[in-house]
């Protein structure tokens, strides 16, 4: 009688999610354990174990791949940096200066915007410095960061909608580019903070 084989579909899924560095060893380990269960118990139990093991391991492997991949870390970090900046622009521009600026067209001009955006950049630098201090400390701030990330995401969505529909006609391309350049160092700092935050929140259990 031929030896039972692990489910092909599961093997295919494994080969998709596993990084090359451990693929052979891990698949070999799983096949060895599958054979042991099939011999000592039954093929049905072995197949059940195989699928269960795939599901159990998927989260650990996927989050590990995500955390250790420079590309995904950088993308997530940049997104976090932008989210943080937009949050503070939103607070400074819309909440603090918003009512006054909306009053007349003359003050609702580029200079006022630069002042408003400039002050928001100061806020964000404070935030990033605070974040860096938190991340460098040995205390576990993961819960705080999860809440902060959710809040930032909410604000980002809200502000993006506002930005898309209300802002484009009010700002010159040159000013937009200048503001973008101003943001670069803050985005980089935010990127680093975001990457650290992500690796702390979602890294596999230590």
């Amino acid at each position: 009688m031929s030896r039972p084989k692990p489910p092909r579909i599961s093997q295919f899924v494994w080969s998709l999610i596993l990084p090359c560095s451990i693929r052979d060893s891990l698949l070999g380990d799983i096949e060895e354990e599958f054979a042991r269960i099939a011999d000592s118990q039954s093929a049905v139990r072995a197949r059940r174990w195989y699928v269960k093991e795939l599901l159990r391991s998927a989260w650990a492997v996927l989050s590990w791949r995500f955390v250790t991949s420079l590309v995904t870390r950088a993308l997530l970090a940049a997104a976090t940096g932008f989210a943080a900046i937009y949050l503070f622009e939103f607070i400074a521009f819309d909440w603090v200066f918003g009512d006054a600026l909306r009053g007349t067209a003359s003050v609702y001009g580029d200079v006022s915007k630069v002042v408003a955006f400039g002050s928001s950049e100061l806020f964000i630098s404070g935030l990033v410095a605070g974040s860096a201090a938190t991340l460098l400390s040995r205390t576990d701030g993961s819960q705080l960061w999860v809440m902060s990330a959710l809040t930032l995401a909410g604000f980002l969505i809200g502000y993006s909608i506002y930005h898309a529909f209300a802002m484009p006609e009010l700002m010159s391309v040159k000013l937009r580019l200048s503001l973008m350049m101003l943001k670069v160092p803050f985005v980089l700092l935010g990127a680093w903070a975001g990457a650290s935050m992500f690796s702390r929140c979602f890294a596999p259990a230590r």
Partner: peptide, 12 residues
């Protein structure tokens, strides 16, 4: 412990 957890730990 799942094999995934073992191998991610070993990699770390």
């Amino acid at each position: 412990a799942s094999f995934g957890a073992i191998y991610t730990t070993l990699d770390r």
